[in-house]
């Protein structure tokens, strides 16, 4: 993960060369706390779009310094939880909005 400065470059690449799958493309993700999950100070992150959902939950887990037994649940559109091996690219292509993919995280199951 890097900070927000790389965001624009990533999006440009995305629209120009979608066929070059091996090239690292970065997208912006927005991480929103749901329920009584602790809030992250930095919500917006620029990440490699080939990373999967389990990677994102591990990242949040580490960032929030949660106890090992606490679990992160991630949701799209506050509706469904994507599979742990779903890659961000697929979610971005279907549910991305204004060049961002918005995800909600909770410590308990929120939208079952």
């Amino acid at each position: 993960m890097t900070d927000e400065s790389e965001a624009t470059a990533g999006v440009e690449k995305l629209s120009l060369q979608p066929e070059k799958l091996n090239e690292t493309v970065k997208i912006d993700i927005l991480l929103n706390a749901a329920g009584n999950a602790p809030i992250m100070k930095q919500r917006k992150w620029t990440v490699d779009w080939m990373k999967d959902i389990s990677w994102v939950s591990k990242f949040i887990h580490k960032y929030l310094k949660l106890d090992p037994e606490e679990k992160i649940f991630l949701y799209i559109n506050q509706t469904f939880a994507p599979s742990p091996d779903q890659i961000l690219k697929n979610l971005y292509e279907c549910y991305g909005n204004q060049n961002k993919l918005s995800l909600h995280y909770s410590i308990n199951q929120a939208w079952g």
Binding site: T79, F80, A81, S83, P84, Q109, G112
Partner: peptide
């Protein structure tokens, strides 16, 4: 490989697929 230790986990996964499909 992700572990699916019991039927509840696969049921929850399955329901989330249905929700995603219905969302689309």
């Amino acid at each position: 490989l992700f572990k699916f230790p019991n039927k509840d986990v696969i049921e929850s996964f399955f329901m989330n697929c249905l929700k995603e499909a219905d969302f689309l």
